[in-house]
Amino acid sequence: MSVPLSHVLIVASLMFAMGLGCVIAWRANVIMMLIGIEIMLNAVMLTFVGGSAHWGIADGQLFSLMLMALTSAEVSLALAMVVYLHRRKQTVNTDDFNSMKG
């Protein structure tokens, strides 16, 4: 296939930045912030797979696989925390979690 590596990287960067934008903009909804984080991590995986194909070695793909496992662990803990906090405070708006400041 004759796609230059830089194009893969640019797609990945765009995806990463969109994920970042999602995290920043959706301050009212933790679920959407987590989705943004998922998008960012997928961008990382794309970069790894692209690099892996570029160099012809499997290491990058492996990293992607591990990232997947790591994200699933992170997401399950985060969602558990969201459920826990929702039970306490009846909200998923992060701006409401501001009892500590200063």
Binding site: I24, T94, N98, S99, M100, K101, G102
Partner: peptide, 13 residues
């Protein structure tokens, strides 16, 4: 208004 994650994220970004 402080203590907000969004503010932290913005400064981080």
């Amino acid at each position: 208004s402080t203590g907000k994650v969004a503010v932290y994220l913005i400064s981080f970004a």
